[in-house]
Design a protein around this nucleic acid. Structure first.
Lengths: 199, 199
DNA sequence: TTTGTCAATTGACACGGTGTCAAGTGTATT
DNA sequence: AATACACTTGACACCGTGTCAATTGACAAA
């Protein structure tokens, strides 16, 4: 029986889909392409996933498992001060974005056609928002959160700043390196969210 | 003959498309829907626009003409100081976003399937970027631009902050009012781009 | 009045992509 | 030998885009 060697067809499909999404033309990946890459018939894909959206959603979950985003985010929660925690969160999430960027694009593209896809993507962004809120709350507890904002408002702002679209714009349109993106985001969030330390 | 009264079919189509985009389900607007609303046959639409992308692009230009975005942006260029100019630009562009939001969505959605649509949208964002650059340059001349950034870097940041996606996230996801969006954007841009005046 | 032009109409169709269905094949299990 | 299961092949319905051909109706010029 061999526990390894023969990989689950379902995961082979997921891997194929991810492969195409990564080096492919974003949301233009068709069911037939995925099947071909997985080495099975197009129809067989439907034996494992009821719709394209279903498959895409499963693909993002699969990436989460492999890359262990939860673990990375958890580590950011251990930081002592609020500012350190903010930085750690930006490190964790900001460096995760490139990993899921292509799938994100596909999911976002499907979102206005497919409710399921929209919900899947919303779940993910909501999770990020929670991370933002936790970081903001830590700032508040330290007394370093800017008096301009309530926790909820500051969360809105941080969430906006750390959106996939902003990452996309800065790195893809403006040509920023990943390293620079992280560095500048830390700076911008400091400037906007953290109170002026004058003593 | 009557110069008015009988409106150009082409514009009737554009108006129909815009109407559907505004109160409709974003990018889900079909050629048949537009034709129906314009009161003509689906095929007749193709007598005026070669493709759906073509129509959508023409629709954005039509909005620009009607709402006179150029005029509004031009006014922002008259401000005396750099900071005033930045505010005026945010007022002009930020308040224009809701007008084009739905068309923007449709255009963005088509962008990874249709090269023309992608270019049309890119042209528009490029125009916004130029506005950002002009505002940033004005700050630089005043000596109020933060030493953290070169003109080009500051433009990247401002451009990112004023993206349609950020407007969408803050107003649609976080529930900010338009008024608040404008107010907070002015604040955030000040905090990130403007040097601390300590004297 | 006839002729021509032009916008629009009707109806049919090709294409590409998703999702479904039915019948068949090969292989491992019992 | 019988059964179950994963997968295959081939056909097909559905939808939306874009195309084509033949027709209609109005208005203008001769």
């Amino acid at each position: 029986m061999m526990s390894s060697e023969k990989i689950d067809t379902r995961t082979r499909i997921l891997v194929a889909a991810l492969g195409l999404l990564v080096d492919g033309k974003g949301s233009q990946v068709r069911m037939a392409d995925i099947a071909k890459r997985a080495g099975i018939s197009r129809q067989a894909v439907y034996l494992h996933f009821t719709t394209r959206a279903d498959l895409l959603i499963a693909a993002t979950k699969h990436v989460d498992d492999i890359k262990n985003i939860d673990g990375k985010l958890a580590r950011s929660r251990k930081a002592k001060t609020g500012v350190e925690r903010l930085d750690a969160f930006i490190d964790a999430w900001g460096n995760y974005i490139p990993e899921i960027y292509n799938i994100a694009r596909a999911l976002i593209a499907m979102s206005d056609a497919d409710v399921e896809a929209a919900e899947a993507w919303e779940n993910r962004t909501k999770a990020v928002r929670e991370g933002c809120e936790a970081a903001v709350t830590a700032l508040k507890l330290d007394g370093t959160l800017s008096p301009d904002y309530s926790i909820s408002q500051a969360t809105d702002v941080l969430w906006m700043l750390l959106s996939v679209q902003n990452w996309e714009q800065l790195t893809k349109e403006s040509g920023w390196s990943q390293k620079r993106y992280i560095k500048e985001m830390k700076l911008i969030t400091r400037k906007t969210l953290i109170t002026k330390v004058s003593d």
